[in-house]
Amino acid sequence: MSIDRNKGENMNIIVCMKQVPDTTDVKIDPKTGTLIREGVPSIVNPDDKHAIEESLRLKEKFGGTVTVVSMGPPQAIDALKEVYAMGVDDTILLSDRAFAGADTWATSYTLGMGIKALGEYDLIFCGLQAIDGDTAQIGPQLAEFLDIPQVTYVKKVNIEGNELTVVRALEDGHMTVKVPMPALLTAVKELNRPRYPTMGGIIKAYREHETKVWSASDIEAEPANIGLEGSPTQVKRTFAPEPRGKVEIIEGDSAAEMVSGLVDKLKEKNVVR
């Protein structure tokens, strides 16, 4: 696939978006140790908004389409409506009971099959990380499934001809990488400031736009590769992290002794290394 963008040819961009509970609002029930989700809204995964914003900017610059794909339960349609109201062209929901319980392997497989069913693309954008599962694994796994190059932790994107020039964050700096399209990028929040959905967009999203909902058979997914069956990992148990209990007053005969005790604790908690 060779596209000469200088001739003004269009880009097909696909963004993967996950609907997540707003974990910044989550509190832990001190009695049961589980999350209190009451009143916690479901939102578009924050990194994915940056992916969408960047895709919309590229579309505005080079022409083309932005299609958003999400795998999730039927309620995820709300999140797709919201991103539609930001200005994307089309939204697809991959929803099937058989997808439930997928780990990142099966999720990537499912998204990959959905993307294959969509046809040709130049660029796939994911968020770096979803705030619930928190693994940051989908981007690379999807790129591998589709056999295209990937750049993660992307904080800047440029396009020349058929090539992407991408700045990728590192712990202590950054790296500039050139990759040919089609490629997959994962967005971090430094990439841009996402736009808000517009009023007109919201109205169209509910009155006119229809999200396509595809099942496992629509995307010709292999039953053994999706949902729980397709997941090599299994969650054995979940539990609450130790809550902030009562304050521990570090005792000691001298200040030096107390300090030494404190440093032991901090080291144990891994906040000094």
């Binding site: 780990d103 990142t104 392997w105 990537s108 599962g133 928190d134 693994t135 940051a136 694994q137 989908i138 981007g139 690379p140 796994q141 790129a143 591998e144 499934f145 990937q150 993660t152 932790y153 990728r168 964050a169 590192l170 712990e171 997941s231 090599p232 990992t233």
Partner: peptide, 23 residues
């Protein structure tokens, strides 16, 4: 689980068809 490890490990997991636990 560094900026490199989190880029690399998932790609390998997909290729060799195994599970990967993050972070």
């Amino acid at each position: 689980a560094t900026f490199i490890g989190r880029d690399l490990a998932p790609r390998i997991a997909q290729r060799v068809k195994t599970g990967l636990t993050a972070d």
